[in-house]
């Protein structure tokens, strides 16, 4: 295996909420002991339902928030919060909502040159403009868009602008936080093609966060399924989709609608709700909704185990 661009070991992020004069603040474990490594030019997809810690993971990897525990390294160099400033250009993010993530009062030229102004103060104005125009060409934005405002664009074009902004500093890693879920189907495929094309041309590494399994299956190489802040199953796309071993992954796959009226499949019905992250049960986080739960699951937490295709379950499927 080639050297990994991003390596994370045991990343955790806890938040303290509430707490007043007499009550102790409570802890939300948004992300617990997540480990992964992404080789250069590959895509790791993180899937899970809302509240599973996907977006917290994105914020920790993009160095927006410090991890409570764990190590995070880019190209073998470990990065602690005091070195963030020097390494932030290596990781850039594209947000979900292209309507909310672009400043409506800035022209496209200003939006795209701002990262350069801040991080490359030595560049002259002409150099900046040249660079902006180059990246605009790269993501398929026409040169005449340079002086326009975001409201003049459709969702798909705005997402191109957001991708262009993320590429301005020539990052090694792009964190894509639900990049196509706000887009219509016909536009979604354009953006997915763009992302795949950029990855091939620039050798980018993607951390792709999504809840749409059909999109994930199309773009990713490796996949990590998260539940309540923990990774419950990781492996290559073929392994996880072909032979899902964690009951939650099974349920997730069976719940995803398939666009084929003829497909007959047995849908696994999950009962219950996601437990509150404020009081995570002591055993397996999925125990309350699992159909093959046993006493051991409620008492002990299963570790993420296995080589290559890892699963955190005492009684995995497909044995």
């Amino acid at each position: 295996m080639t050297a990994s661009v991003v390596t994370a070991t045991g990343l955790s992020r806890f938040y303290e909420v509430g707490g007043g004069l007499l009550s102790k603040p409570r802890e939300i474990r948004a992300l617990s002991e997540v480990s992964f490594a992404i080789p250069r030019g590959k895509t790791l997809a993180v899937v899970g339902e809302s509240g599973c810690g996907k977006s917290t993971l994105a914020r920790v990897v993009t160095m927006i928030e410090p991890p409570t525990a764990g190590h995070f390294a880019i190209e073998g160099t470990e990065i602690t919060p005091d070195q963030w400033e020097a390494h932030r250009d290596a990781v850039q993010i594209v947000f979900q909502d292209p309507y909310g993530s672009l400043n409506p009062r800035q022209r496209i030229s200003a939006i795209l040159s701002e990262p350069l102004k801040i991080n490359r103060p030595e560049m002259s104005r002409a150099e900046r403009e040249a660079k902006v125009r180059e990246v605009m060409g790269l993501v398929g934005l026409r040169p005449e868009f340079y002086d326009r405002y975001p409201h003049m664009f459709s969702g798909g074009q705005r997402q191109r602008i957001a991708v262009a902004r993320a590429l301005m500093l020539e990052p090694k890693v792009l964190v894509l936080d639900e990049p196509v879920s706000a887009l219509d189907l016909s536009v979604q495929s354009q953006i997915l093609n763009l992302l795949l094309d950029l990855q091939e041309r620039l050798g980018l590494t993607y951390l792709f966060i999504s809840h749409d399994l059909s999109v994930v299956r199309h773009v990713c190489d490796e996949i990590m399924v998260m539940y309540l802040g923990r990774a419950v199953e990781t492996g290559t796309k073929e392994a996880v989709f072909g032979n899902p071993r964690h009951p939650y992954t099974r349920a997730l796959l069976s719940a995803t609608p398939v666009a084929d009226p003829k497909s007959q499949k047995e849908r696994i019905k999950l009962s219950g709700e996601l437990p509150s992250p404020l009081n995570i049960p002591p055993g397996c986080p999925f125990a309350a909704r699992c159909w093959k739960v046993q006493d051991r699951c409620r008492a002990e937490r299963p570790a993420l185990d296995g080589d290559g295709h890892k699963v955190a379950c005492f009684f995995p499927e497909g044995e």
């Binding site: 459709s154 798909g156 189907l185 016909s186 536009v187 979604q188 495929s189 354009q190 997915l192 093609n193 795949l196 094309d197 059909s214 999109v215 299956r217 199309h218 773009v219 398939v258 666009a259």
Partner: peptide
């Protein structure tokens, strides 16, 4: 629209509908 579904994709490049 049906061709643009990622799950119906036959290659890495998805068919798209140009324009808006």
């Amino acid at each position: 629209l049906l061709a643009a579904l990622p799950e119906r994709a036959t290659s890495r490049v998805l068919p798209t509908i140009p324009g808006v």
